[in-house]
Design a protein around this nucleic acid. Structure first.
Lengths: 200, 200
DNA sequence: TTAAGGAACGAACGATCGTGCTATTTTGCG
DNA sequence: CGCAAAATAGCACGATCGTTCGTTCCTTAA
């Protein structure tokens, strides 16, 4: 048998553990993850959970990776069905809004940036790589919108990507603290101004 | 003697402890604060540090409060020397930029919002109160700029305050992850567009 | 039927956590 | 100087942390 069967028992329970770990990390962050509490949550022993990852750091990296894959699957992937250019870009933002609504009580990727942006180590590197990757996807979608003539030809893709990201940070922030509805209104209004100011 | 002499020994060492605690919380967050590590940092015993606060939560609240006071002293207060209206508003943003540069490796107030936005308890309430207070100050400065005729008369103060805050979130985020310089350029460019779009 | 291998458990490790208590030291006042 | 009061240290507690190790259980193949 090769290195991994398509869906062996090991992989299945590992997925179960990661699912619980992700839910916990949404509230307590990756630094708040404890193997004991996680084991209780999934109904396993501490050592049983531990054996699947080998170290707490590996567990945290796996949860971070799961978060990144879920984000991509929920925000980027469905938007790819839209035609290239502004429609796809707006679809990304729309799905990102939905993601923020579902993650009002905390987003693993965002809390991870707060937790690891000033440290060294594998988690820091993983967070930076993940954020840089997503920013790159954003810039790619923006560049396509420029190519299609949906945005001004002199658009600075990094600049616009930054502003889009900042608005979503605002949505997450205000949504978590003051309630999603008001935050959603402010963010949507800001986006209308944003698209208008970059239209050709 | 009354409840507190102007600068007794107790208050002095308490300030020393809080200063170290603030520095530590910048890297590890308020949840990462441990009394033992803090005691080692200030060269005291665990119980000696503990006696000043009575509980870990009280310590965290004190650090959060110190952060808020330092933020106000560094960002709002110096801006009050500028004349009401847009000059003062831009001064607030300028000092906020400097604050973000000094706090690239982590801002206690920001990480606190990530850590407590999805929980209950005194820390959550303190974070919400602090953020709401600051947002209120922003809105007040914006309203004055409207009164002075420096911004459009139909300006939605809550909306503009949200957008300003979102841009600073972006500055903190990108500054910590990708380096301050590029983040500062993007944020400054976004602000120029922002002021222009709200000018009368 | 039995041997083999993987998965999970249970117990224990040293370390550290927050938090009490009781001494001991330091301080300020008469 | 001497004495009360305040400030700090020392010690111990139960709990939990991540991690290791040996054992048990279950599945699968010969």
């Amino acid at each position: 048998m090769e290195t991994a069967s398509p869906a062996g028992k090991r992989a299945a329970t590992r997925d179960t553990i990661l699912d619980h770990a992700y839910a916990m990390a949404r509230n307590d962050g990756l630094e708040g993850l404890s193997i004991g509490t996680l084991a209780t949550g999934v109904g396993m022993s501490k050592s049983g959970v531990f054996a699947h990852f080998g170290s707490r750091e590996e567990l945290q990296l796996a949860v971070l990776d799961l978060g990144a894959r879920r984000f991509m699957a929920n925000v980027l992937l469905p938007a790819l069905k839209q035609p290239r250019g502004l429609p796809r870009l707006r679809a990304i933002v729309a799905h990102w809004f939905a993601w923020a609504r579902k993650h009002q009580s905390g987003c693993v990727l965002l809390s991870a940036t707060s937790e690891y942006d000033g440290r060294d180590g594998a988690l820091h590197d993983a967070v930076v790589a993940q954020q840089a990757g997503w920013r790159g996807e954003l810039q790619k979608a923006i560049a396509q919108a420029v190519d299609e003539g949906h945005l001004r030809a002199d658009t600075d893709t990094a600049q616009l990507a930054f502003e889009i990201y900042a608005l979503l940070l605002g949505l997450h922030h205000d949504g978590g603290l003051f309630g999603y509805d008001a935050a959603q209104r402010h963010t949507a209004a800001a986006f209308e101004r944003l698209w208008r100011s970059w239209q050709p």
